[in-house]
Write a protein that binds this DNA or RNA. Structure first.
Lengths: 189, 189
DNA sequence: GTCTATAAGCAGATAGAC
DNA sequence: GTCTATCTGCTTATAGAC
């Protein structure tokens, strides 16, 4: 009789994600992925026949879906300043670990850049477009909105780097609260 | 008779740096390091008896020295706004490749974080202190200077991430020119 | 200071039992 | 769906010649 599944695919992907986020694509060894999931290497190949590349690919896909449903969805539903505030709160939730790190950043180092660079670039572009549309709805010009969305994403990514260096959520939280200030400035005017 | 050196240690370190910066610590294989330098693996062990760890360590040390002489030196020499402007120009030079990337960022992923995290944290703290001291000399309060220095470093690191994602110097150049604007605002007042 | 050759172990990946 | 056992090639590291 077949042994029961140890966990759902979502649970597996979650554990795989941590390894890729902490070590990057090349640094994530099959042994580390196996230990993190509690599944043998052979079991991992059963779920992901193309091995590491497929694992990283599906982890990235799942992360994109999470970004979409958590961070981007508020932005397409309402198109105003409240939506921006909701999205910033969701961003804190999206990067939810004690020392927050960006999977898309880690995954695009070295060989991972060749494999997943285009996907990440598109995802970032979609995020930026969604931010800009909402900022423009606050009364900003197309150019201002474009500039602010680039600024906001840059700060978030920078804060994530600083959070990793300082092993603390503080830089990310501080950054998001300042971006919230930018939005409220427009909202109260 | 012994064969002549192929290159100076500085040249070797420069080539090693590119590999660590592009692949991170775990992703930088001895083969890649060998090919990048043009030296056999055995020759690399001659120069760096402790192998990869010593190479990364010395590369990081060299990068710290370069940051010191290029970016931080102007800040300790003059202590004013002109010094800040000089330092920002030097920052563009410090990150000098076509798609600029931060070695200290790449090197602190995975195992590298355990090995070099503290060093990088100290280097970043020194950079931030130097920026803050000069900003304060422009007339800002201690708190304002502290906040601006954190802001500036965060933006620079974020711009480097975006530059990698977009494979372009544009985000970094744009970021540095906006930071220059911050400084000029105080200088002209 | 450089190299070729080699050792020992880990990497990614597969076969086949239960 | 899970596992143990295994394979091949790559990775780190060393020995020793020139």
């Amino acid at each position: 009789m077949p042994r029961p599944p140890k966990q759902t695919k979502a649970e597996t992907l979650q554990k795989l994600k941590q390894v890729f986020r902490d070590h990057g694509y090349e640094g994530a060894s099959m042994q580390a992925l196996s230990e993190a999931t509690g599944l043998s290497k052979a079991s991992l190949y059963h779920h992901f026949p193309d091995g590491k590349q497929e694992m990283a690919s599906q982890v990235l896909l799942e992360e994109g879906r999470k970004l979409q449903s958590l961070v981007l969805a508020p932005l397409s539903e309402k198109r105003n300043g409240e939506a921006l505030l909701d999205s910033l709160v969701a961003t804190a939730e999206f990067y939810d670990s004690d020392t927050p790190q960006c999977l898309m950043n880690s995954l695009t180092l070295g060989e991972g850049g060749r494999l997943f660079g285009d996907t990440v670039k598109e995802t970032v572009a979609a995020w930026r477009t969604a931010l800009a549309a909402n900022y423009q709805a606050l009364g900003a010009s197309s150019e201002e909105a474009d500039a602010w969305s680039a600024y906001a994403l840059e700060r978030i990514q920078g804060a994530l780097v600083m959070s990793r260096v300082e092993a603390s959520r503080a830089p990310l939280e501080q950054c998001l609260s300042e971006l919230e200030g930018d939005v409220r400035y427009y909202l109260d005017a």
